[in-house]
Write a protein that binds this DNA or RNA. Sequence first.
DNA 1: GGGTATTTT
Length: 964
Amino acid sequence: MSHPYGSFSAQRMHPRRRYGDTGESSQSGESHFGNHGRGRGQGGHPPWLKGKQIGLYYRDKAREMKQKSTKVIKLSEPVQVQIERVLYNSKGYYEKLYNNAYAEDTLHGTLENKYMHIHDSQFKRKFMNMVSGNLYENLDRALLVKSRLERDSDLDKMLFNEFKVKTATQEYQSMEKIRLKLPAHHKKVDILRLLKTNQVIVISGETGCGKTTQVAQFILDDAIEHRDGSVTRIICTQPRRISAISVAERVATERAERLGKSVGFHIRLEKVLPRDKGSIMFCTTGMLLQFLQGDPALKEFSHIILDEIHERTTESDFILALLKLIISKRSDLKVLLMSATVNRESFSKYYNNCPMIHIPGFTYPVTEYYLEDVLFLTEFKFPPATALPQDHRKHIKKYKQEQQKRDEFQDMIEVIDQLRNPHSEKLSLDLIEQLIRKRDPGAILVFLPGMMDIIKLNKIMLENGHYPQHQYVIYPLHSRMPTIDQKLIFKEPSEGVRKIIIATSIAETSITIEDVVYVIDCGKTKFGKFDLKKNIQTLEPEWVSLANAKQRKGRAGRVKPGICYHLYSKAREKTFECFPLPEMLRARLEEVILQIKILQLGKAKTFLESVISPPNMKAIDLSLDLLRTLNALDDEEHLTPLGYHLAQLPLDPRTGKMIIWAALFSCVEPVFAIAASLNFKDAFYCPLGKEDEARKKKLELNMNQFSDHIALSEALTRFEAAYKRSSASSFCRDYFLSFNTLKLLSEMKTQFAQHLYQMKFMNSENPRDVNANKNSKNTVLIKAIVCAGLYPNVAVIRKVTRNGTFAWTPEDGCVAIHPSSVNDRVKEYPSPYITYFTKQLSTAIYLHDTTCVTTPILLFAAPNMSIRNEKGNYFISLPSSQNFPCDWESAQLIQKLQEQFNNLLEYKITHPGTVCWNGFEGDLLKALTLFVDHSAIINLVCQKDEEMGFSESDIQKYEDNMCD
DNA sequence: GGGTATTTT
């Protein structure tokens, strides 16, 4: 099975290994290139050809060459000289640095022995502590340290008095009136009483019950009134950034305060912290996970409130498991688990049957209709069921004949007939459109599975003439469409205008439009999963769960009684799952495992067995294998020095690797931009109706580089320049980019710089620091570093058709380049190799973000290579399954250069610091930079395949995997 | 000719 991750060095670097004594490549010293002149230089064209014919002759000749001959890689003279010089200077370089501390027989010894050669004492101490520590020791140690929550009686009094004054103000009291009306208010006493005698409680409640805004305040106010303000610090987690901010703002308003006094929030890249004691802090769940790294016993807090845990995100499931361990050592810590009613029992059970308390919700009643009702109402007919098997159709016909006599049921029979049509289980935009058309006034929210459906429905409605602009306003709502960043969608339309929102599941929880009265729920949603059998990430439409359906329905009853149309039958509903599959069972586990390691929670499997829904062992193994391939974990599942760095970065390990390389190569700005975009989201909108225009703009930003990654980097570069000139908004408009996303991406760059500065890979916390950007204009180097991070995610382009571009990967065979990529349907690619970040099975297997990479880039990105000799011809073989016929001397030099580079990486990772460009390190990196450039390799076009010693099987292997 | 949605001292 091939691994989607590359690694710094697949094998441990061996400083004793000398230039010239590598194993397999040295078995032959003979010249391999004796026949390279053959096949070239056949002289001119036949003398009888004239004019255009001459041109055609040479064109055909060239084509023939291209098909029949093979390129042999050979280093160009200047590059060869440079590499030889660097290799000469490398002799003994690392032995000296390691003081010969590294010895062969320590390879399998204790950790202390294994890392004996590290003499960066500061790094070594931190790293060894990390690898050898465990949670319980950490908890014990943490509990000895004084907490910020020491009692302060003066402060208790002060907070109490201040509170009394505050509650007497008119502003406070007018807010209080509203609070008192919330259902949660009636449970205040019960909740506080239950919390007195229990360490953990579950609070359930539906939307509108007020639990999110009230519960933390109950606790804080009660504490202040009991003169416990100084020992109360509440943290309340939210799954989303927006909700953390808006809840904090709401609560501050209710307390007649500004943010930053008793209420604050803390999300990535943005915070308004509350006062140290007697306060509530709202934060994202991911943020609490980060706090846990520095504060394993959560000594900074007296109460932990986990909100919306029914959503079953990886983060909240993870924290639930970890909190169980922590509370055993922290009997004074109170934990409140807040969930929708749906699966509250499972959380109580998980916490030793802790008590539950329920807050009834308040929403207006919503009348529900199912597909059978909708068909009756609209008299809609699906297209004929031609796809049905013959006997089935006969059966229907017979059934129909029998029933036809009973005229009074004719309508009903028609509906049943329609339900029998297999099309009734498919999404019908025409049915949805008819349903929309006939509704009474009131905003309509339509749930569709994905972008394509939104585009199509929008098109239908614009083109059929039933939705004139003065009567209807249609908003598409998708995370990648510009409407997401507009306030317009929340506003009530002007008198006599209907608001129709066509949305994905984003409108289920993330975005709330208050004035919706009608909900049309197509019953399908796209769901990302990992298919363990096929070993591929998938994104396919599926039936929603009952919990989703309930949530969708609820969206119709926020301001007055509403109506929900489910476009599936009552019978189909019976097959629905109760809840969506928890994220932990769907997603890749690499980052979770790195979290386990950085929090010192022991073996991944042991810990993951303790979570509320343990993931499949196979899935864990798969991720462990990847982390080992990446050289982030060793065979005993300990973090390696590289893994130690990667685990601390707020990035996927592959992009984490990219930014460390970028720091070493002094080209951080573009690589940071790419890493941030790949990890978070790219800023390119899909503007409805302007798709082609947007595509052209993306192509422009790609600057003929055949790279989505370069386009991402260029977009951010130009945005930042425009921002300085105060013209960022118009830049974003012109290029169909999201201002908000670019702003965040830009801030992430600073965060990366801060991390690398702390790790000592940068000398400055500024991503624009000149010393960290000496090579930032070198596009080839940027691509090479991107490829190295993504390696071995490399596909080979095979065929460009009108329907798309098809490529080949060893593990999947034929794959397609996603139409949103700048590399889709290019006339001529500079190289057949394409590196990619995402590969996902939807309507086909698509590669999403791609960069076309040349042979030297691929050789640079590979963590190792082998040199094969076949019938006197040499090949470089890469782990990503590419083979290159090569000049023997060049191959040797390239391999040795790679070994030296691996030595450098191993040294830098264990002795973090910036590269000294005026020494051996600088020379080595300069040689590598020279090497990745196009001119590094002369492709000698020469022999025909069979003369080159390509075996039939070599050729066959490629032919077999051709697309179509 | 097409990417549900989140998120990280």
